[in-house]
Structure formats: C-alpha cells, structure tokens
Design a protein around this nucleic acid. Structure first.
Lengths: 251, 251
DNA sequence: CGCCGGTTTGAAGAATTTCAAAGGGAGTGG
DNA sequence: CCACTCCCTTTGAAATTCTTCAAACCGGCG
C-alpha cells in the first residue's frame, strides 16, 4: 500500500465522475479511504465466478474484462472495463461474484473493501450517486451488447464494437489520432462478440478493405468515423458520455 | 388513480424486496407515495428509446420487455420484466430512456415520478438498497444473456431461457405444475435469443422430443428439470433468488 | 365461414464454424 | 546476431448451423 495513493486515485476519480462535480468533502473522504493498489499482469484473474467478494475493484489503468466459460471451454467476454470503471459493483450487494474478472492487459487496480465502500456511499450521497450512475451505464452497455450480438451480422457487430471502444476511450481523453489506445487481439474480439476467430479475421479485413478502419501496429485506427458509425448503427446515447454530441468530431 | 393503491402495491413490494424485511416505516412511506396505476394492452409501448424519462415503472402484473429495433427492422428483446420488477431503473439517473419498453401481454403497471422515487430512496436507505440490489440483479441477468446469446447453440440457448424464466417465476411463487405461467410466442423467443423463428421452432421441437419440455396449450412446461438445466448449463446464482438452492425441487 | 396470429414444414442459400496449417513479428537465449 | 519459440494473424476448404423465403396448417374468434 504505497504512501501516496492519492496520486493514483485523483485521475481515477476524474474519469469516474466525469462531469459530476463532487464537493471537496466527498473528494477528501474518498481519497482518504484506505485502498490497496495492485499491478495485475495480463491474463491474470482477479476474481472468479462464485468467489466470495469482500472488496470492490477500481480500474486505475489498463484493461479488464468480465467473462464466463461455456460448455466446450469457449469463453464469452461480457464486458470490457477501462480506466475509471468499477467492474464488480454488482457483487457489492451480493457478496458473491456472479462472473469472473480478469486483466486483458497489464493493469493497475485499486481495491476497496465493501464495508468501507458502503459507508462512503452512506455518508456521501453524491459519491453514491456517481457510483449508482456508473453501474447503470454499465447495465446499459450490457443491454446494448445483447442487441449487438443477437441481431447484427459480423461486420456490423465489429464496427459497433470499435465505435463503442473508441467513444469510451475518447470520452476519457485517452484517444489520440482516432486510435483505440489499447490493443485487443482478434481472439478477444471473437470472445466478446460471440464469434469465431477466423470469422473475426475475415470481417476485419473487410472493414479494412472498405476503408473504415486501419491497423497501426496492433492498434485499431478509425479511418472513417461516419462510415463506421453507419456500418455499426452506432448510436452513442447508451454510453451516457459527458461529451455527448461532441463525439462525431473524432476523426 | 384508484382509491386504494395499496392493494396493488403490497404484493408488488413483497415480490420486489423478497427476503429483505423492510421496517414498517419504509413500507408505509412507500405505500403512501402517490403512483399512477395503468393497464397496458399487449403489444403497447410504454416508452421509446430516446424519450425523456420522468417517471419509473413498477410491474405489478403481466410481462414487459425492453427491446431495440435493428437495421432491417428486426427486433432484439434485451430483457423480460416480470411482476415485481422495475424495468427502467437505468433511466432514473439519466432522465433518458436508452431502450424501448413495451408490454408483451396485458399488464398492470404503476408509475412513480422520478423526484418522488429519489426522495423515497434518500429518506429510506433500506428501500434504496432494495432498489439498488434489484438493479444489480438485472445487470447480472443481462450479462448472462450476453453469454447465452454469444456462445450457446440454439438448443442450449432456449433451454437456458426456459430455466431462467421458470426460476424467476418460481421464486415469485407464481409457477405451479412446473409450468412457466405466461406464454411466450416463438417470435418473442426468437427476438430475445437472437435467432430466427424457424430455428426456434425446430429447436423447441428437439427439446420436446428429448423429453425436456412439454407444451401445455401455449405454455411451456418443464418435463425434466435436471435435463433442461444440463442442456442449458443453467447455473442460477446470477439470479440471486432468495430461494437459492431450493430451486431444483421444482419438477 | 373466413380471417388472424401463431406454429409448422420444406428446401435453397448464406453466414459462420471448424479443422488444419502456414505466415509474421517480437522477444529470449545461446 | 541468429535461431527458436510463442503468440497472434492469416489462409484454404469442408462441414454445419442458421436464415430466408414461401407456403401450409391450426385453433380461436368475430
């Protein structure tokens, strides 16, 4: 537990709350609450489905995902968690992880015990509102995924995913050059979109050929935002980003 | 606004809170808050994606769904909402409906204005906790759907759906004779599971032939709970039912 | 009786998965 | 600095699942 956790927590708080200005009371209370900060290696699990949950997790940096393993051993990624997120809020009220949480990339994560988090919420309603709001955004994204996976063909599905990821990173101020600032393997794309790696590969090639995206190294770059939005029927309201509407100015 | 709303609200509250015993203060406050109760005809929309949201909805009776219309006009049902649910909690903190809400069957619904709901929550933390908890269960279900739709083949997908619906109704005490007490058309099953009607039809026939389900009239009856659970890889923890573990005694 | 919403069937066609193997790039150890 | 390995991407081709289209069927209801 490093001496100055605030250095790590302040930027997190900014990303977490976005527009909602917390008054300094809340901020101070939050920053003074003891947390444990850990670096998690890529591929490492943070918690497993069915585990007892006693603390909640704040993503300071990196990329996490919740996932579930199905039948023949195939994995379904249910959500991506970026810096500023709290991936395991559902467990706060159950004390039980309903799904597994793991780091896709080297990540920095803070843990706060449930009792501490609960008393923070109780004593600082504004903070509580932020957390609640965040949880509802996640729920909204999750529902959106149901639609994307359930009803859109491969090409559109991936287009939608890229739009979403870019929009989310962009809202955090982390996207430059129209590029999703973290790389995602095609296997991960496949696992999150409910398709096979092979098909992801071919669909991506198609998106590239149509000039909608480019690959700079391992990273996906949006070559034609309008086109990608159209291909994926992307309608960003469900993300409830602060920068609502400014978004299209991306590319 | 009928004279005795309490008559409708009391059973709802029982279903909503489940185990969590509210103290009578909270209960009284809730029951005294003015709500508008409406009957909604099957097929009627309650709110549309993008609409401003000024009140929240409690499902007293019937069956609702949130859905989204995609591309060529195909519909994706993102969630089913049974009696005891609050389908549009996400909108409470955004004032904007991210997805459409509609009645699949003739339903009875209560509306409470957002300001009233918010002050109820603020003044009655226990009630707030129930609501939060409910929202988290819904989120959990939604994630589960991502897995189901993304990674399970047709037969298993439907098996899982039937298990979930039965378990949820059963937990409300609404299921008798191992039967899902509300009928769902094959078109609705298709729209919720991201498949075509034709394929739903054939997969259902398969489930029937394998003796896992029966159809009594329009209703689905579980003929072999164990078998259905296995076919759908159903693992009910994510539903966070009070009757945790008692479930298998269903059939 | 005839319509209507929903189910069922057949058959062709498309999207997607699976299997199997090759290619590429970046890091590690010799 | 090369060789080797590991992880990821790419390719080919066959098999399968699933969708689409189109029509028949079925039970309830006006």
């Amino acid at each position: 537990m490093p001496h100055s956790q605030a250095a790590d927590l302040v930027p997190w708080l900014a990303r977490f709350c976005g527009a909602a200005a917390l008054n300094s009371d809340d901020t101070v209370a939050f920053l003074n609450t003891p947390v444990v900060i850990r670096d998690i290696a890529a591929g490492q699990d943070i918690s497993l489905q069915g585990d007892e949950a006693t603390s909640a997790c704040l993503v300071l940096d990196g990329l996490l995902c919740t996932y579930e393993v199905v039948g023949a051993g195939s994995r379904q990624i249910q959500a991506y968690h970026l810096s500023g997120d709290m991936p395991d809020l559902p467990a706060l009220h159950f004390g039980l992880n309903t799904h597994s949480l793991s780091a896709l990339r080297q990540s920095k994560v803070a843990f706060i015990t449930h009792p501490r988090l609960l008393s923070l919420i109780a004593e600082h309603p504004l903070l509580g509102a932020c957390i609640w709001r965040k949880a509802m955004v996640d729920a909204s994204i999750s529902r959106s995924w149901v639609t994307n996976i359930g009803r859109r063909p491969a090409r559109a599905r991936l287009a939608h995913l890229f739009c979403e990821l870019f929009a989310r990173f962009d809202a955090l101020g982390l996207a430059t050059d129209a590029t999703i600032p973290v790389w995602i393997t095609q296997t991960e794309m496949a696992d999150s979109q409910g398709m096979s790696t092979v098909h992801v590969n071919r669909s991506i090639q198609e998106l590239r050929r149509s000039g909608l995206i480019k690959m700079s190294g391992k990273l996906v770059t949006i070559a034609d935002w309008e086109g990608l939005v159209e291909a994926g029927e992307f309608e960003p309201t469900y993300l409830h980003l602060k920068s609502q509407g400014i978004l299209p100015a991306a590319a």
